[in-house]
Each structure stands twice: as C-alpha cells, then as structure tokens.
Write a protein that binds this DNA or RNA. Structure first.
Lengths: 243, 243
DNA sequence: CGAAGAATTGAGTCCTATCAAATGCCGTGG
DNA sequence: CCACGGCATTTGATAGGACTCAATTCTTCG
C-alpha cells in the first residue's frame, strides 16, 4: 500500500530554492492556484523548498510565526498541548494544505512531520506583502480559512457527540476522501500517522482506537494492512458515520 | 444581573431599515469597522435591521445562504444536528459577531436566537459584491475567520481532552472574557443560554453540567445567580482551566 | 394559584480510561 | 542469517467518570 507514493517520492536532495512553481505537483490544489502563470516567478523568488524528517518540528505553539508553508509531500500533524502533557491534534496537513492561515504574530499550535515532509516555505513578511497586493490571493486564502473552519466545526461535532466507533469510522472515511482528492480514489486508505496520533485526533486513548480497529476488522468492515487500512464495506461505514 | 442590558435594550420596534450604521453600538467590534465613515452609507443601503424572539431560527443547516448577519444585540447559538437528534453547539454569537463567514451556497450549521436577538441583515449577493470591491473588507473578514478558527481549535482541545469540571470552568472564563470586550469587565457572567445549550456546547449532558455547577458553588468558586454566575475565585478557576 | 418547563438531585449502569502484560515489527549488529 | 533490543500495537482485567433513567424542586408566567 503505497497509494501516496507519488507525493512521498518528491525531491529533497537537491536542497536549494523551489524547483519551479510551474511544475509543482500540488499547485493546483494549493493557495498558489490563485496566481497566473505570469505571477508564478514572484512566488519562486520568495519560496524555498524545505524538508523535514519524520518527527521533526516545523514550528511550535507560541513561536513567532516568521514563515508560512504549503505541504508538498508527506503528512504533518497540527496539535495543541496542555501543561500536563495532554495533547489534542487539531488536524493533519496533507500535500497541498497550507500552514499559516492565521497570519498572526505567534503560532496557535505546533506542527511536526508525521513522515518525511517536504514543504514550500515563504517568509511571512514577503507573503503578507503579496497578499496585500493581490486581492485574488487573499480571496483564495479566505476560501481556505472558511474551509478549515467548516472542517473544524465538523470535528467539534465528532469530538463532542460521537461514540468511539463512530469517531474511528468517520476518521477513516475522511482520510479516504482527502487522499482521493490528491491521488486516485482507492479503498486503500494510507495511515502514516501512529495509533497515538489517531487517538489524540479523535479524543480517545490509544487502546480504544486499537480495540475499535480490531472490532471493525472482525466485522469485516475493514482489513488492516501495513501503513493503512482497506475499506471493505463502505455502505456500512457511511451508515455508522451518518447515524 | 443585567450586565448586557445595554445591548438587550436595543430597538426592534420601529422595524424598518438600519437606523444609521454610524450610531451602531457594535460597529467598532464588527466587520463594519473596516469601512470609512464615507462608505457607511453603502452599508446602510443594503442593511436591514431584523429581530428574532427567543428560540426563533435565523437560518438552518443546508439552507441556501441568501444573507449574512451581524448580531446587534442578544445571543444566538450555532449548532449542528445528527440525524438521531444529537446536537453539538459549535459556538455562541454575541453582539458584534458575524454570521456568514463561509460565503458558501449552503449554510454549514443552524442558528437560532437564545434570547431576543436583533441583527443587521445583508443580502449575500450585495455583500459579496462589496467584499469584491473593497479588499479592506475582505481583509477584515479574513481576520474574523482566522479568529474563529483559533477559537474552534481551542474548543477542540476542550472537547477532546478536558474533564467535565475543566470544560465548565473554561466555558465560564471564556464567556466572562467575551462579555468583558463588549460590556464592562465584571465578575458577574451573564448566561442567557440554558443548561442544555451549555451541555451541547461542552459535549456533556445537562445533568453533568448541573452537577458541576453545584459542585463549583459548594466550593465557593462560583455563586449561581439568576441568568448567570458570579465568579468568586478567579485564580482557582484559571488554574483549573490551564491545568 | 397552578401548570409547564427548566434545573437539580439521586441511584445505578455503561462506555471508555487506566493499568498491566503479551505480541508483533524492524533495524542493528554479531 | 538470525538473535537482540526498542518501540508500536494489541489484548486483558479492572476502575471510574460521565451517562441514563427517574424523581424532586425550582421558576416562570398565564
């Protein structure tokens, strides 16, 4: 199961600056799609491709936000911590996703790489200037923000009012849909994140997540495969998630 | 305890169009602050003051979004429902708050009045046109959206990882802060919404909310008063909420 | 004053968390 | 190649916090 191999295979060796935005695999699904071909070189001037090995930190909650990112390949987790160590993952960023919508002085959450991540980094000041100059980009940014807000509201529903099984099923369907937009639609859903990550996303413990996976597997609703799951009974899952 | 009497007292009798945006009590905290005095008449042309008695519906999830609103007085609840009736309140809208950030075809949640609500209604098309024309307004809208997103992420942390007592305490502190920005800072926190609303906001049951209030009152952390609570031990509450 | 809804209180249960142990999975190095 | 060690995951047993069901008590308002 390497459904996301296309993205995972992206470069990170040649280091240096953004090897041409025009060829960027995620451009059309990213904020950059707001720019005409003519403006792309503006981006290239400020962009810089950076990579992070698995578990590396892109930035931390409270840090001054000196840059924004678009994920080029790999998956990152966005999370908040309580002083006593409890963690809530507020989202997973997939290729094409934008980090830094808030445009605030300090980051509201921490982000680190789940698997090796390649991202396009823009200095915040230069980026803010571009946004001020091109209302079109701001418009696109606002679209992203409201989309995120919608996702956040759906997730509140999930966290506050759904059972463990419903949470896991909704999570799997959600991941499937997100991969489908990037890759090819597949009943194989890649899950690069750990069970602990899933638990912290769904407001559960790792044990409950694990038990729920095995229960779904016993039901023949899913099959657990290396690095992911295969969905065997979509209809049943949709029913559970709608419930 | 009528800490919000200033707003609750706002007009709704004379009906008709927006009695001058320049005099609007919430203008400076609303999206409208993005407009110069010179542009305010543009708003007045499209705005229309509307009022809703307690429990009335402003709009429902899935409805075509034909208007956006700024709350002028009163409190509204934003919520999502599951087919089986479970409800998650995703936020409370106070005076100055904006409804319709998404600018999408269909509303992503339902909204109804907790107590009598007065709102400033803008037809969506006219509003969208204004936004397209004035990047400054879009910028302000985006500020609101990212602020909402930050609140939503904090709320995910609360829903997923906090205990019942922490939830209630964080809720009270949050409401206190929001009223403080409108009204005068006070240890009296108005709570126009019902216990059931609070429960559906915090991902708890009404009984658990009630028991937690009683426990906090026994502790002398709060005093329960008609239409709200009085916070008697802020320091203790901050500790619980930080934890 | 009395009815209807809201809030509180009580008793018992259940879902999920907690604590603990076993198993599986890899990369390392002999 | 395979044994070893460390980490992730699964499985088991038990406990507890919040839920459910049910009964009062309190408010509000006609």
């Amino acid at each position: 199961m390497k459904a996301h191999a296309t993205y995972a295979g992206a470069s990170c060796h040649h280091g240096q600056a953004g090897e041409s935005c025009a060829n960027c695999k995620v451009r059309l699904v990213s904020v950059c799609s707001a720019l005409e071909a003519a403006d792309l070189h503006l981006l290239e001037e400020m962009a810089r491709s950076v990579c992070f090995p698995a578990k590396a930190t892109l930035f931390s909650q409270g840090d001054p936000a000196d840059a924004v990112y678009t994920i080029t390949s790999g998956v990152a987790r966005l999370y908040k911590l309580l002083p006593d160590g409890r963690r809530q993952i507020v989202g997973f960023a997939l290729p094409g996703d934008f980090l830094g919508l808030a445009m605030q002085e300090a980051n509201g959450f921490s982000v680190d790489a789940v698997d090796p991540v390649v991202a396009c980094r823009f200095p915040r000041k230069a980026y803010a200037a571009l946004v001020d100059e091109k209302p079109h980009v701001l418009h696109r940014l606002h679209e992203f923000a409201t989309h995120e807000l919608t996702l956040a509201q759906d997730h509140m529903m999930l966290l506050g009012r759904r059972t463990a099984e419903e949470k896991v099923v909704a999570f799997l369907l959600g991941m499937r849909e997100r991969w489908a937009k990037l890759d090819r639609l597949s009943i194989n859903v890649p899950l690069p994140m750990s069970r602990q990550d899933i638990a912290d996303f769904l407001g559960l413990t790792i044990e409950t997540v694990s038990r729920t996976f095995t229960k779904l597997a016993r039901d023949k609703t899913i099959v657990i495969v290396p690095d992911g799951v295969r969905l065997m009974n979509l209809e049943h899952m949709e029913t559970l998630a709608a419930a």
